[in-house]
Amino acid sequence: VFAADEFYVNAFGADTPARIPPASDYGDYDMFEDGIGIVRSYVDEFDEACESGLAARAAEVLAARDLTARYIVGEAMQPFLDAMIANSPLAGRLVPLTVRNDYFGGNVNVTGLLTASDIAPAIKATSEEEEGTHQLFLLPSVIFNDNGVTLDDMTVQDIENAAGAPVSVVSCNPFDYLPEIIKLAQDES
């Protein structure tokens, strides 16, 4: 029997990484797609990215180009992801853009179920509020299906058009999205 990740996030908020069971408790992560073990896996991979220097390298490249990477996430990740990043080399350079899922009534809060109709206005508002700053808006690939559309049938181009800002699709895992961020930042110059 496994408790879903949301159980731990709801109970422990920002302290979730310190309170969630160790990876060994999840076996082979057989229930991963059902939201059991995703947080543990993410926390472990983020910690490894920090320890290996990958996070520091991404922060250096972003700082050298005066860029802030705005990574789109659902509200479920916000309490602990903000705290993890604040205590990492990426503080101030990788800034989650937490999006409320109004499309599904606000009670569905995972990143994979976000829709373009909620993401685009959040990007637009952030872009306008922080006008003059250089930002990379990053969409986790999990919000798109195999046909490249969101749950409300929007493409990356549709999101860019509605947001009035360029966006890039990146992985959901730190070991994959940090190199992608480095490449995107280098391509900005």
Results as ranks from 00 to 15, higher is better:
5 D>V: 03
63 A>I: 03
133 T>Y: 00
36 I>K: 10
10 N>L: 10
86 A>K: 13
4 A>H: 05
97 L>S: 07
8 Y>S: 11
99 V>N: 01
10 N>K: 14
69 A>V: 02
75 E>L: 09
144 F>L: 10
96 P>Q: 04
50 C>L: 04
78 Q>C: 04
111 T>W: 04
39 V>T: 14
152 D>C: 14
175 F>A: 15
155 T>E: 02
74 G>R: 03
38 I>D: 00
4 A>W: 01
28 D>V: 13
158 D>L: 08
75 E>Q: 12
46 F>Y: 14
96 P>L: 11
128 E>C: 06
148 G>S: 12
55 A>K: 11
174 P>L: 13
35 G>R: 03
68 T>R: 13
135 Q>M: 06
70 R>W: 01
137 F>G: 04
128 E>T: 10
21 P>T: 09
154 M>V: 05
45 E>W: 08
189 S>V: 10
67 L>E: 00
13 G>Y: 00
23 A>S: 08
62 L>W: 12
62 L>Q: 12
56 A>F: 05
145 N>P: 14
108 V>Q: 09
73 V>A: 05
182 I>E: 10
8 Y>F: 13
14 A>F: 01
156 V>D: 06
141 S>H: 12
90 L>N: 02
88 S>C: 11
14 A>G: 04
3 A>T: 12
18 A>S: 12
124 K>W: 00
128 E>A: 11
15 D>L: 13
9 V>N: 04
136 L>F: 08
120 A>N: 02
124 K>R: 13
22 P>D: 03
80 F>Q: 07
79 P>R: 08
180 E>C: 14
185 A>G: 11
155 T>A: 03
11 A>F: 05
58 A>K: 12
97 L>K: 05
133 T>A: 04
162 A>K: 10
43 V>F: 00
99 V>M: 00
70 R>M: 12
12 F>E: 11
25 D>P: 01
64 A>M: 08
72 I>P: 01
43 V>P: 07
8 Y>H: 14
87 N>T: 10
21 P>W: 10
24 S>P: 07
47 D>Q: 08
123 I>F: 02
179 P>V: 15
112 G>R: 12
76 A>P: 00
36 I>Y: 00
182 I>W: 04
109 N>P: 07
